[in-house]
């Protein structure tokens, strides 16, 4: 860990001032940032501790939704009464991630900014375009077990590792972002994370000096909410593939299918075409297969992660079967 200056702002405005310079980072729970600072993957010269700002509130919004403060811990969010009753998908996704110790520290904002677990990213003696632009990608010709099958580029095949944001993408949540002297801006979770393209160093659309203040969930909608996570251990492992689903049925036909996927792309993967394809259909194995065909039509494996293509197909079918009551 490089030496750094440690500071604590006394207001949100102050925080956005302090975090504006390059080489400055905000720290909340620290469960990802401190990990990466020890490895010198992250080397901020100034660390702005925003934990004492009052951004941990979880409150109803005027339109019947829920606003989750950026500093609300994962534990607090998953245990919140309305999250449990109206957004069980979010509670389930959070509870499927990490451990209680980590969730007690991890925050909404920090979790959104969680960086990839790519082995080449976390090893500073290996090439990685995300960590060190222009140095190459070690994973493409290396061990790509954890890696993406959709939306990759020649520069990066890393995945976004989290669970919470995958659920938020299915729930069509909005990220609230503020910067000094400007009005809060709103970015859909679905657009918050980026694809790597030729700038894989940028995980998301957050600019220097911007701070996430919270996430809003729209008013709850009808439908069954399911989070299915496939992993190598029964707990405490990142997703090989995960599926977040909000699926409703009307008169035997699918009337809503909001789906998002984890573990397969540089961002929580949301393909709006799936909803278009599924809504109005009578659920069946063949329909689920068609959805998987569409989802995976551009999927590309990198050897070690080829299995994610059939695994995603099967996880999707299982989730849709569960949601619609179809026996497979």
């Amino acid at each position: 860990m490089r030496p750094f200056q440690y500071a604590r702002p006394d207001s949100l405005d102050h925080a956005t001032q302090l975090t504006a310079p390059e080489d400055t980072m905000a720290i909340a729970g620290g469960t990802n940032l401190i990990d990466l600072m020890k490895l010198q993957v992250e080397t901020p010269q100034e660390l702005i501790d925003i934990n004492r700002l009052t951004m941990g509130e979880i409150a109803d919004t005027d339109d019947g939704g829920l606003r989750i403060g950026a500093l609300a811990t994962n534990t607090a969010t998953a245990a919140h009464d309305r999250v449990r009753s109206d957004y069980p998908l979010l509670a389930r996704a959070i509870l499927a991630g990490a451990t209680q110790q980590l969730r007690n520290k991890a925050t909404t904002g920090g979790n959104l900014c969680q960086r990839t677990r790519c082995y080449y990213f976390t090893n500073i003696d290996q090439p990685c375009n995300k960590r060190d632009p222009g140095s190459g990608c070690g994973a493409i010709k290396g061990i790509a077990r954890l890696h993406a099958i959709l939306g990759t580029s020649n520069h990066c095949i890393a995945t976004y590792p989290g669970d919470m944001a995958v659920a938020m993408a299915a729930l069509d949540a909005q990220v609230l972002i503020t910067r000094e002297g400007e009005k809060e801006r709103t970015v859909p979770v679905r657009d918050f994370h980026r694809l790597p393209g030729d700038t894989p160093e940028k995980d998301n659309v957050l600019e220097a000096g911007e701070i996430i203040t919270g996430v809003t969930l729209p008013a709850p909608v009808e439908g069954k909410q399911i989070y299915r996570k496939v992993r190598e251990r029964s707990s405490y492992a990142f997703a090989l593939v995960s599926v977040a689903a909000v699926v409703a049925m009307t008169d035997g036909r699918i009337s809503r299918a909001n789906l998002a996927f984890g573990g397969i792309a540089h961002k929580p993967w949301h393909d709006p075409r799936l909803s278009e394809l599924l809504v109005g259909e009578t659920p069946s194995a063949a329909v689920f297969d068609k959805a998987a065909d569409l989802l995976l039509e551009d999927a590309q494996g990198y050897g070690e992660n080829d299995f994610k293509i059939p695994l995603t197909r099967r996880a999707l079918a299982a989730t849709l079967a569960d949601a619609t009551g179809v026996e497979l």
Partner: peptide, 27 residues
């Protein structure tokens, strides 16, 4: 492990268990 991957450093802070390796003392 010093990286929040094993739990050996678990302590209870204000009633909640955390990995003490992934927290700075000054916080």
């Amino acid at each position: 492990c010093d990286h929040g991957q094993c739990g050996a450093c678990t302590v209870i802070v204000n009633g909640q268990r955390i990995n003490s390796c992934l927290s700075l003392a000054v916080m």
